[in-house]
């Protein structure tokens, strides 16, 4: 018996001293047996990142390509003062009609929008289309407009209409949008009047 105790100690001590390390907390979830040594997976680490990143780097979609190739893509993303209240504005071109397009408040619909003319001021914010080769290059582009309405109006000579004037302080490009199917105000006071009905006295050449 006196020999058995040292013999047992001699056999058990190395087992206790050279016990395998406990598994890490992170690897415990994947391993069913916590006593099993966590074997690193060198294959997974050595894999090229192509397989993993395939989901993240998506190929450009057609719409993105189309947007990037539009001339309006050259308009600055933001310009001038772009803090404070703003209007949603959409460039609309009506042939032979003075004005820039429609503006509305954020919570309004395009039916409630106002047709505006833009006044170009020498020290003010340039009108967005002035960054582009032609004025019609930003047709149907949408912007956030920072600025205010002028206390005076502009005269539209084709329709004899008064149009609101917007003083631009800054803008933010929002990209292309669907055309607004709505005519600008027209022919308000150009109807025949009692003076015109009298007719002119023609001078014979």
């Amino acid at each position: 018996m006196g020999l058995l105790t040292p013999l047992a100690l001699f056999l058990l001590l190395p087992c206790l001293c050279f016990a395998p390390p406990l598994p890490l907390r992170s690897s415990s979830a994947s391993s069913t047996n916590p006593a099993t040594p966590a074997v690193p997976e060198p294959i997974a680490q050595e894999k090229p990142p192509a397989e993993d990143s395939e989901e993240e780097v998506r190929p450009p979609i057609t719409e993105k390509v189309m947007r990037a190739t539009l001339p309006a893509a050259h308009t600055p993303a933001t310009y001038g003062v772009t803090d404070g209240p703003y209007f949603i504005a959409q460039r609309t071109i009506v042939e032979d009609y003075c004005g820039w397009g429609w503006v509305r408040k954020e919570n309004e619909t395009w039916r409630q929008a106002t047709w505006i003319a833009m006044e170009g001021t020498p020290n003010g914010c340039p009108i967005p289309h002035t960054f582009l080769p032609k004025p019609e290059d930003d047709k149907d582009q949408q912007y956030r407009f920072y600025g205010h309405f002028a206390p005076y109006r502009a005269y539209e000579p084709q329709a004899d209409m008064w149009v609101d004037v917007f003083i631009l302080k800054g803008f933010m490009s929002m990209g292309p949008a669907q055309s607004i199917r709505r005519d600008p105000p027209a022919h308000g006071s150009s109807r025949p009047n009692r003076f015109a009905e009298r007719g002119a006295n023609m001078l014979k050449p």
Binding site: D96, Y97, C98, G99, W100, A117, M118, E119, G120, T121, P135, Y152, R153, A154, Y155, E156, P157, W162, V163, V165
Partner: peptide, 8 residues
Amino acid sequence: RVDGGALE
């Protein structure tokens, strides 16, 4: 001052 128009 306004493209295609005139101020009031």
